[in-house]
């Protein structure tokens, strides 16, 4: 089975197992959008069954909420499966993958302190980069940070 057939097979399998929307950006980059309840499961499935690696998670402050993208490269197939999901800005929380994948520990800590997303089940969610006494509720990479910070730090 060559590379394209394998990728097709994997995408078909994922489509049957989970409710996802597949967007093919180009030959190597696939974006799989799903709900925040399925995303951690989907990530764990791809990590364990397709020999994928967790490269990083990106968080973006958008109008639809805080978008979290899990970037999973499949090194043997020259492809990236990027799992996208949105969490609500008013109560941003999602299940942690850091408890199963050790590499995700620091990544989730960073998103937690810069965006305020709570990762449920994370073993050690404390500050990674910012000072311990950084003001609560002030998340530097959120869009409203510049307005809120005036006079506070």
């Amino acid at each position: 089975m060559n590379r394209e057939e394998k990728i097709e097979k994997y995408l078909k399998e994922l489509n049957e197992k989970y409710k996802i929307e597949i967007y093919k950006k180009n030959e190597r980059k696939y974006y799989l959008t799903t709900s925040k309840d399925t995303a951690p499961d989907l990530v764990r499935f791809i990590f364990r069954n397709y020999n994928a690696r967790l490269s990083i998670m990106t968080a973006i402050d958008t109008e639809k909420g805080i978008e979290i993208i899990y970037h999973l490269p499949l090194d043997c197939l020259n492809a990236f499966f990027n799992v996208r999901t949105f969490v609500d800005k008013k109560k941003p929380e999602i299940e942690s993958v850091g408890k199963d994948i050790n590499g995700a520990n620091w990544i989730e800590r960073e998103i937690n302190e810069l965006f305020g997303v709570n990762f449920i089940g994370h073993p050690n969610l404390k500050h990674l980069l910012l000072r311990e006494d950084w003001q609560e509720g002030l998340y530097p990479l959120r869009k409203d940070f510049d307005l809120l910070k005036k006079g506070k730090i």
Binding site: R28, R53, L54, S55, P73, D75, C76, N78, F80, I101, N102, G103, A104
Partner: peptide
């Protein structure tokens, strides 16, 4: 452990993981 911690570069290659971005994602 190398796979679980998702390490990269010579650290991964020294532990038997065949991973080099120049080869895998040219």
């Amino acid at each position: 452990d190398a796979l679980n911690y998702c390490v990269v570069g010579p650290t991964a290659r020294a532990s038997g993981v065949f991973q080099d971005i120049r080869y895998c994602h040219p």
